[in-house]
Write a protein that binds this DNA or RNA. Structure first.
Lengths: 219, 219
DNA sequence: ATTTAATTCAAACGACTGTTTGAAACATGC
DNA sequence: GCATGTTTCAAACAGTCGTTTGAATTAAAT
């Protein structure tokens, strides 16, 4: 085992290529050519391309989701019986995800990958992600409700949806914005990204619900 | 020309399938089988698959962007020399896009398609979209600046980014949320979707900029 | 050293991809 | 009528796709 394991070399290469061009656009032959392994090795170690995709995602996402949940639990413990502040909950949700951008091992590639997953229409992948995120959705959904006592459940769901969109899009096109504004966010500047995202989404969650616009004509 | 034109039948079918499964996942043979036309007809009328994708998008997006710009111009004219309210600007941006969900001709399929485009990593498609959106980005960027006098240009760019993410994700997964909450949004209820999105993003834009978190250790 | 298991390898499988071709079918103008 | 240009059609092109196979290689265990 002098050189890196075949299995992890496949994972690393697949992660990089998937993040760059998408899951469908990258073929197994692209991966094995770049990873310098045999084509059959993919099926030997993972079984199928679909399973490889799942492994690539799960390897990073599972620790992230674990960190999210422990962060939330710790915050809850520290705050005693006082309800958690919304910004605190959002921080627990965002930080573990954006921190991997600063991680030299994972690199900025994976974050983009996670952002991309949410836009995929692949049925199996969607099911898989929902399974991975199930506990996170439950715990943080409850935390949001607790932090926003005045808000309808329905409205809270919609706003969680908006928040998820802002988060995913930011991950997916992190480099895009950097080029526009000149900030170098690929460095350990993920802190300011998280701060900006919290500012925006927390205010969005707390927004006053405006009354429905009266219809111009009766149907 | 008793039955619908071949060209538009290809466009309609491609739009529907692309929205359901994505651009890469749908082959030309899937399209021509469902549209009941010959395979070569695609290349005869459009030249290539890439060109077909562009046509599918442009057919709906171009009128939408036109409507966005005229709405903004009209709002500006009505408001005289008073600066436009942020909510008004957002309404001009969102409404034409979400209105197509209620359009029985376009159906809810196209909206999803637009949402999906933003997550695509395809280089050519991205260039194409930027070209289509150029004027919209310029005009509305200026309108946001005018409506948010206190905000840095940099912070405004980030928040525009967050807003775009919330918008795209909402379009892309409109059905998802509907199933959860029980609202039937595929009907002409796009009004309330727009209202909710305006509430959320307007508050996000106006959020107080919190100071940077002090670093735990000096690097 | 011999047996057993785990891993790598080249080669092929059938199915599918976007695109091209050249001949038919159609419509239109003279 | 014939000629013109436009549109449709079946068939094939050259690749690429994910997956499978069976032998060759390496590692581990006895």
């Amino acid at each position: 085992m002098a050189k890196t394991d075949t299995k992890t070399r496949i994972l690393d290469t697949a992660e990089r290529l998937f993040a760059q061009k998408g899951f469908d656009a990258v073929s197994l032959r692209n991966i094995i050519a770049s990873a310098k392994v045999n084509l059959a090795a993919v099926h030997y170690h993972f079984g199928s391309k679909q399973a490889l995709v799942h492994s690539v995602i799960a390897r990073r996402l599972r620790p992230i989701n674990g960190e999210r949940l422990t962060n939330l639990a710790e915050a809850r413990a520290k705050s005693g019986r006082r309800p958690l502040k919304l910004e605190r909950v959002l921080d627990c949700l965002f930080r573990p995800l954006f921190r991997v951008q600063a991680d030299p091992k994972a690199g900025p590639t994976f974050a983009r990958l996670v952002g991309r997953v949410m836009g995929e229409r692949n049925e199996g992948l969607h099911k898989f992600m929902m399974g991975e995120l199930a506990e996170v959705i439950i715990q943080f959904g409850a935390a949001f409700e607790a932090a926003l006592p005045g808000l309808t459940k329905e409205e809270a769901d919609w706003r969680s949806h908006f928040m998820a969109g802002a988060m995913a899009h930011t991950l997916c096109n992190a480099d895009l914005l950097v080029r526009f504004t000149g900030t170098d966010a690929d460095a350990s500047d993920y802190e300011s990204t998280v701060r900006r995202l919290i500012d925006f989404t927390a205010a969005g969650f707390r927004a006053k619900v405006s009354p429905p616009t009266r219809p111009r004509k009766k149907k």
